[in-house]
Design a binder for these strands. Structure first.
Lengths: 153, 153
DNA sequence: TATTGTTATACTCTATAACTATA
DNA sequence: TATAGTTATAGAGTATAACAATA
């Protein structure tokens, strides 16, 4: 039996606790979305399209930190579910525009209320100053590290 | 053009910011581990085995919230890298014991220092009371929701 | 030649379920 | 029959890179 080197416990890392909670929150949300036959990545794309009217796939890929290939497959699924449309751009035919269908536009507010409910479930008990402090710290870390893309997974 | 229903911005959810930071922290850590040819899931298993001496795969699966099938494949990879051994149990041959090899045992402290460094990078700037508060809040949420498994992904 | 979007390949993880060896 | 571990299949992500169409 070899000697044990001193190794810090995983629970000593703040990143561990963050991932612990974040994974459970995301998982609980994904279960709620699954009841509507939507994945978290799909939800994020639908949410992006809700305000933007028409968006080019490459732009979505940049904003979400996904590859164009990943977006392409994702849009395939959303189109198959009749939630999103691809419209060819006549001026420059390399481009296309993504837009919500009527069905997709109707679905977003429902999914959004699932997100509200999920957040309330996990963080609703926090005192307002606690909540504000966590939010401030997280935003601060995002800013310090120049994080730009919306988290999808 | 249809009327827009009021939809809360994603940034209004604390879960959004948590996932944002947590994903970046985990991603940065996975890059550090990749330099040692190890994934995050593999690291968690190695870390589990470091203290426990010998562990049954089903127990690992339970603790990490993974299926037995997932653990089986994971252990295949770790065994192929000569980091983990499977030892058949002679008393009940349905069981086996997992244990670190010498190489695996040597590697864990190195990976652990990568974890330390990663945590420091993202949370080192926090004032001790801030850090303590975040940690307390996260642990509290874990306790409230009866979360038991170690987060892997 | 550069860019958009698609497609192919490979890899990690997930989940379900069939399968084997053993008890 | 129940359990431990393996294997197969399918699905959702990731990444890289080749590819066709267009500019």
């Amino acid at each position: 039996m070899q000697k044990q080197q001193p190794v810090s416990p995983i629970e000593a890392h703040l990143g561990y606790w963050l991932r612990f909670v974040s994974n459970q929150v995301s998982h609980a949300f994904s279960l709620k979305l699954a009841a509507q036959d939507v994945t978290v990545a799909e939800w994020v794309v639908l949410r992006e399209l809700y305000e933007k009217e028409e968006v080019v796939p490459s732009l979505i890929a940049d904003r979400l930190g996904m590859t164009r290939g990943a977006i392409s497959k994702l849009v395939d699924r959303l189109a198959a579910k009749s939630l999103v449309l691809r419209r060819p751009n006549e001026e420059d035919r390399r481009y296309q525009a993504l837009a919500l269908t009527g069905e997709g536009r109707k679905l977003v507010p429902e999914l959004s209320s699932l997100a509200d409910r999920n957040d309330e479930e996990f963080f609703g008990h926090l005192a307002p100053p606690e909540r504000a402090m966590v939010e401030r710290i997280m935003k601060d870390i995002v800013r310090r590290h120049g994080m730009r893309t919306v988290p999808v997974d």
